[in-house]
Design a binder for these strands. Structure first.
Lengths: 334, 334
DNA sequence: TTCCTGTGAGGAATCGTTTCCATTTATCTG
DNA sequence: CAGATAAATGGAAACGATTCCTCACAGGAA
């Protein structure tokens, strides 16, 4: 790997002049000198060392995204939105997958704090514990979070509560009396909000909140399958299930089929997220759509503002939309 | 952010001594001095600047993964495998999503070349064009590729040809005479290999290779749907489809349903990859399983060897396994 | 007392950049 | 022709770490 010194020697100038050409600085450089330098750069395939530059400038033009689960397609569109904006603005993007492991979250935050990144977009909803929190606080000037968190940072939020309320109301409107709920991880604020929205709709319609109708999964199809099986096998038949994400909804539908139930005739199922495969399922899944791409775009725009210390809106809020497809239907029982 | 100098001043020692404590070097440091320094480090929440360290040491303990499409769950397990090994070995992982854009691929390779990463795992199968290639060649000492490429680098490969042969043979064994094939992007070596495997099985059984039975998609369900529609609507009915990945297979199944065909009674469909949702589909998808997690583990292990210049095996090969589920059945027609 | 050895600590070079300031040379003005 | 101004370039500091080399000092041996 050649350095700026190699280029300078080959072009018979000082490194200062090479640097001026590289960054086409306002400083004047003689046209012929410039060409000689450009020639040398080309010949050596010179690229400035980002570490040296970053060390001096305290800016790496790199931002980090921390996501909890790379296999959840839910996050894919967020990343796309972020990346498209980042590309336009000259930022490179590092993606860190935590698998929801606290230890990894901390590691990555430190990694990014140690100046490898100018800013961080933190998604996933779980921030807690002393260490994570204090570190992030110090980073106030270069973090944007997606979702609701303990910390009050610039944030992009999604109306999970409203979406869940709508989804539940949809089931109620269809005449379902006993509705099962499959929630997500205990400490995920997203999952908590979806549960809150569900309860809120039930309350508004004077439905009782029955603990036996509430199960928890870890967002995988498998966990949805298991939770639905429990719900469906216990006494007091239910006719509808609202799952906190699409994957679990798919699992739930499978459990129903296995028990000989028809979806939607015997059991209505609603998911959340509208992942790309949702409409390809049998039956196509009724779910709540989130504008994930836009969320990503907004988060990155906000981060750029934060980094450049522009005045910013502290919170950007996105609504959701209920997509009614084939997995829900009227309750004919009783 | 405090620096090593801040720590040195607070502990009233030189930066050299602080550094010795930080890296617990073999050099002797008096116990009381050490404690004074540790105390200062704690109080200031000092963390060494990774850029400065990297600049000097020419090692960042960071590796990059370049993947073509973050929304393809196919890659999720690879990343998991890589990350688990990396974590154990003290490496941090940066994930770069290219969306198959040549420009991004080049950018990321440069980014990583500029020393932000000690090594790169390149997956996705498309490497071509002068610029990409020459850059990578220079990086020979710190790149491992996943899949087959133009360049001869240390590689982890998957038997796509064999898997595709098996899948096609399975359809032939079921008595299908006219088998449609939905391939992937033109320049993806993975997609090419799967096509090769398909053709090979056809040839072995003396089946003609009919251009009208071959369509191409871009790996999304939507593209599989469109391709299948074309296949099914043209004259000369087919009774089976082999799609180059699961997502397209899902799309194909949808197209069949829409045309009033039953899967598997009227049409058998085989996918490739066995993504997590495959078994939850209706009908559960017959597909080819790839040990993606193991591929990731192998790639990272190989990269560590490459970086440390250990002698390494140049290629590690993984087999595939046909999983027969509900989407394929005997051909009863004719 | 003198010399030697070992322990513990500090000084300074180094990595590859950017940029401030100084310097050289040429050109212009009066 | 002297002095001022402008254009083009170079020198050197700085960023924050690691590590080689040097040095001070205490204690033991002769």
């Amino acid at each position: 790997m050649s350095t700026i010194l190699d280029v300078a020697r080959r072009a018979k100038v000082s490194i200062a002049t090479v640097s001026r050409v590289m960054n086409n600085s306002p400083h004047k450089v003689n046209q012929s000198t410039r060409e000689r330098i450009l020639e040398a750069i080309r010949e050596l395939d010179y690229r400035p060392n980002a570490l040296a530059k970053g060390l001096l400038m305290k800016k790496t033009m790199t931002i980090g995204i921390i996501i909890p689960d790379i296999s959840n397609t839910y996050y894919a569109e967020i990343v796309r939105g972020i990346q498209d904006v980042a590309d336009q603005s000259g930022y490179a993007v590092m993606l860190q997958n935590t698998d929801r492991k606290q230890e990894r979250i901390i590691n990555y935050i430190y990694l990014l704090r140690e100046k490898l990144a100018d800013g961080i977009i933190f998604s996933g909803g779980i921030i807690h514990g002393y260490e994570t929190l204090s570190t992030l606080k110090e980073l106030r000037e270069r973090v944007v979070v997606i979702g609701r968190h303990e910390v009050d940072f610039p944030a992009v939020r999604v109306d999970n509560i409203g979406g869940a309320t709508q989804a539940t109301q949809h089931l109620i409107d269809l005449g379902h009396k006993r509705i099962g709920f499959i929630g997500g991880p205990e400490r995920s604020t997203t999952a908590i909000d979806r549960f809150t929205g569900c309860k809120s709709a039930l309350a508004q319609n004077s439905y009782p909140i029955d603990g036996s109708l509430i199960k928890r999964g870890n967002l995988t199809p498998q966990s949805g399958y298991l939770a639905a099986k429990e719900l469906l096998e216990q006494s007091g038949k239910i006719t509808a299930i609202f799952a906190a994400n699409d994957q679990m909804a798919f699992g739930a539908i499978n459990a129903a089929k296995e028990l000989g139930l028809n979806v939607p005739d015997d059991l209505s199922v609603v998911g959340f997220d509208n992942i790309p495969l949702s409409s390809y399922f049998e039956p196509p899944l009724t779910t709540v759509e989130i504008p994930m791409y836009d969320v990503g775009v907004a988060a990155m725009r906000m981060l750029i503002d934060v980094i450049s210390k522009k005045s910013i809106e502290k919170v950007k809020f996105f609504g959701t939309k209920l997509l009614i497809r084939g997995s829900t239907g009227k309750n004919f029982k009783k």
